[in-house]
């Protein structure tokens, strides 16, 4: 069997997820032996023509041109895997979905008329069928290698969708919420990072997006009622790298409407 060809594509993103692949230094040579890296502009200008057996797609769709380009990428790809929070949930740039993009553009650019952009930043799966979504902001190198290894072996990748809390306990970290009252998104966030932040005494920021069955309302009520986090701060906490993930988005909206209702009551 000939080596499968691999292409890496960039859409609206910071390049961090592609760089994760390059930073897998120990495995990079093996990877280059097992797959033919045919299209990876971050690594080399040399491009082999498609179609490609496997495409790794980084970034979200924010322009009409990219909405077209992703359809082309899909059409020349065998297996399409999205990597990272941008490709999977619209990324931090999905904060624009809550705002008036034209107003932003006129503030930022001298000639906003040159800017051709969509009103929303959306995930790849909202445009084309996706075979596998790898979470994280950025993705974790071991998980990325695991997904590629699984694909090569024709097996299911081991990327469990349970909460960060499980990993937190596996590594023996002390729960920052219980022991310090520090707000933590671990219970509603998918594992994958190895509970890095709680292990360093910080609450989870939610980089991996919603876990399999996120009870966002229960956690945010607890953070509000017991730990004294105000509604605006809760909405902000949920609106970082995965602001447009449906469960986080809905809970942030709920907090805002609670705050709004309370504001009206107060007057």
């Amino acid at each position: 069997m000939s080596r499968p060809s691999l292409a890496v594509w960039k859409f609206a993103s910071c390049d961090g997820c592609q760089l994760s692949l390059l930073s897998a230094e120990d495995e990079l040579l093996t990877l280059a032996e097992e797959v033919h890296i045919a299209h990876f502009l971050e690594a080399t200008r040399e491009v082999a023509p498609g179609p490609y057996d496997v495409s790794l797609v980084e970034g979200s769709i924010t322009t009409p041109a990219d909405a077209e380009r992703i359809r082309h990428v899909r059409s020349i790809s065998g297996t399409l895997i999205t990597i990272g929070a941008c490709a999977t949930a619209g990324g931090i740039q999905a904060l624009r979905n809550l705002a008036d993009v034209e107003a932003y553009a006129s503030l930022v650019y001298g000639h906003p008329e040159y800017i051709s952009t969509l009103a929303e930043s959306t995930s790849i799966a909202q445009h084309v069928p996706v075979d596998f979504e790898l979470r994280g902001c950025p993705v974790e190198v071991p998980q990325l290698l695991e997904v590629v290894s699984a694909l090569l072996a024709g097996r299911k990748p081991v990327t469990p969708p349970h909460a960060v809390c499980l990993e937190c306990k596996l590594r023996g970290a002390v729960c920052v919420m219980v022991a310090n009252g520090t707000p933590c998104l671990g219970p509603i966030t998918q594992a994958g990072c190895g509970a890095r932040c709680p292990a360093f005494n910080r609450g989870c920021y939610g980089c991996f997006g919603p876990m399999e069955t996120p009870n966002t309302a229960s956690l945010s009520d607890h953070l509000h009622d017991e730990l004294g986090i105000c509604d605006d701060d809760l909405a902000r906490l949920l609106r970082t790298f995965n602001a447009d993930a449906p469960e986080f988005r809905a809970e942030a909206r709920r907090r805002e409407s609670i705050a709004a209702a309370r504001g009206e009551d107060a007057t």
């Binding site: 909460a163 809390c165 499980l166 306990k169 729960c175 671990g186 219970p187 509603i188 009870n215 956690l219």
Partner: peptide, 13 residues
């Protein structure tokens, strides 16, 4: 169930 986060902490400890 409306309060439980299914976070697994109870079983881990």
């Amino acid at each position: 169930a409306s309060r439980c986060l299914a976070c697994t902490n109870c079983t881990m400890v």
